[in-house]
């Protein structure tokens, strides 16, 4: 399943981000690709949702792969230790192929 996220994800809209990701996973696929090409900002409230998605998909034998991550967001992922638990690739195709 491929989901795209754009703009800012912070404590104001983290709940809708969570709902959108849950919707994307409803089909039963445990492999989630998140296209972050238009994501300009993510705070710990958004990271929390990504971690939940990783836990959920991993429990079903899948995982989360991010792609097209902007530099600042990538730095946040690295400082948070998230690059250890999810795959980060340059393109959507590479993210799909990572599974």
């Amino acid at each position: 399943m491929i989901a795209a996220v754009s703009g800012r994800v912070d404590s104001v809209n983290a709940t809708s981000f969570e709902q959108e990701l849950s919707k994307a996973m409803e089909g039963g696929s445990s492999r989630l690709v998140v296209d972050c090409g238009e994501l300009s900002y993510i705070s710990s409230a958004g990271l929390r949702i990504l971690l939940l998605a990783v836990k959920k998909t991993r429990a079903q034998g899948g995982g989360v792969a991010l792609c097209q991550v902007q530099d600042h967001v990538r730095e946040v992922l690295e400082v948070s230790g998230f690059t250890r638990i999810m795959t980060v690739r340059d393109t959507v195709e590479q993210a799909i192929d990572s599974f």
């Binding site: 705070s43 836990k55 991993r58 730095e75 946040v76 948070s80």
Partner: peptide, 24 residues
């Protein structure tokens, strides 16, 4: 301090905000 060596299913959901602020 967050423990990044924990396996995914044991990682706590919160506690990253202050860590980010301190490190950025």
């Amino acid at each position: 301090l967050p423990d990044f060596t924990l396996p995914v299913d044991e990682r706590p959901i919160g506690g990253l905000g202050i860590h980010l602020a301190k490190n950025l």
